[in-house]
Every structure is written in C-alpha cells, then in structure tokens.
C-alpha cells in the first residue's frame, strides 16, 4: 500500500504537497493560456535542437559515406515506413480535431479522437518493433555501420518521444473522463497536441531521409 501511495505521489506530486502548492493561480486565465503555449513552443524548440544533433550527424556522415548510406537505405522496408508515416499523420489529424472539439465543448468527440490517436501510436510502435526485431535477427544493429547507427539512434530517440507523447495524451484522456476540461479550460489538450505534432514533424523528415533517399 505504501508503495502504491508513493508511486501515485510521483505521478501526482501535488496531492501530497502542503496546501501552498494547490493555491489557485496568480494570473488570469488568458495570460495563463498564452503563457503555456509560448512555453510549449520554447520546449519544442529544444526538442528540435535535440534532434538537431542527429540531423547534423546524418548530414555529415551521409556526405562522407554516400555509398554506405545508399546501400543501408535500400535495405530498409519502405512499405513499413510509408505505413507508419500515414499512421502518424493520421494521428496528428485526430489530435488537431480533438483540440478544436474541446473548444466547442464536444467532450465525446475529444475522447474518441484521443483514443484513435493512442491506437495509432501503438500501431506505429508495433510496426517499429517488427522492423527492429527483423533487423536484429539478421545481425544488423546499432554499431553495424554508421548508417545503421544513425538509423537506430534517430528512430530510437523518436520512438522514445512517441512513448512520452502517448503517456502525455493518455493522462489527458484520463482527465477528460474526470471532467477536467471544458470550453474554458483546454490548455493541457492544446499543448499536449503541440507535442504530438512535433513527434509527427520529426518523422516527416526522418522518413524520406532514412528510407527513401538512397
């Protein structure tokens, strides 16, 4: 029981905080909303630069070892990659719809859309699992050569972001059932959505660079 309480306190630290934390905000909702969005965009900027290191490594090593990259790229499964691209863009669309729906107080629609998003993300993950395990069973892994190192590092870090995004959207979905969001209060859904779109954006670049341009 103690352990459960502890784990719960990690997820919702505020529940075990002194009352001062539960203080209502010092700022008006309008400021709070626009501030949260600006903060999220700044965070997206850092995410972009985090992937920036990988893109830079890609650009440099691709120019250095064009043949290795062409061969490696030709060995990747374009069909699986394309399917994943379609799935991810679709999930981006559902999130965008959810953000609009909450502003019209259509909670049901929000929930449906978030469920679809989560399912898409899960399918994306399952596809990736098959892709990875197929490669690994053929003796290809990170460290095989620079191309596969980039492939595993970039898609791996991206996959990590998919999981984080799933966790964020999952918590939001749970909270829609608790009635925490409404037409007046939807900041969390909007910034959670922004994060998910970033995951999509990164993939939009990774897909052609890794799978197609050989």
């Amino acid at each position: 029981m103690q352990i459960m309480k502890f784990i719960k306190s990690l997820a919702y630290p505020s529940e075990m905080l002194p009352p001062i934390v539960e203080e209502e905000s010092h700022f008006d909702p309008e400021t709070e909303h626009s501030a949260a969005k600006l903060g999220m965009w700044l965070f997206l900027a850092t995410e972009l630069l985090l992937f920036g290191g990988l893109f830079a490594a890609y650009a440099i090593f691709r120019a250095k070892y064009p043949v290795m990259f062409a061969e490696g790229s030709a060995n990747l499964d374009v069909v699986l990659g394309s399917v994943n691209t379609v799935i991810l863009i679709f999930s981006s669309w559902t999130v965008a719809v959810a953000v609009t729906a909450i502003q019209e107080n259509k909670i049901k629609l929000v929930q449906v859309m978030l469920w679809i998003t989560l399912i898409c993300a899960a399918i994306f993950g399952i596809n990736k699992y098959f892709e990875y395990s197929y490669k690994l069973s053929n003796g290809i892994g990170p460290g095989t050569d620079i191309f596969y190192s980039i492939y595993f590092a970039a898609t791996g870090v991206h996959m990590l972001h998919v999981f984080i995004g799933m966790a964020v959207l999952g918590v939001i979905l749970k909270r829609t059932y608790e009635g925490r969001y409404s037409k007046e209060k939807f900041t969390a859904i909007e910034i959670g959505g922004l994060y998910w779109h970033l995951v999509d954006l990164i993939w939009i670049y990774l897909f052609p660079l890794l799978y197609l341009v050989g």
Partner: peptide, 27 residues
C-alpha cells in the same frame, strides 16, 4: 502545413514565430 494549420502557428504572435524559426537557424 502541419505547423501552420495543425499547430495553429498561423494564429500565433510574432514571438512564437521567432521561437519556432530561430532553432532552425541554429540547426
């Protein structure tokens, strides 16, 4: 397209635009 429409960059103020574009420059 994703940034402008899905992420509503279209409707954001100039500060957000700067923070969206500056990292691209750094990259």
């Amino acid at each position: 397209v994703v940034a402008l429409h899905f992420m509503h960059l279209k409707y954001e103020d100039s500060m957000t635009w700067i923070f969206a574009i500056y990292p691209l420059f750094l990259l």
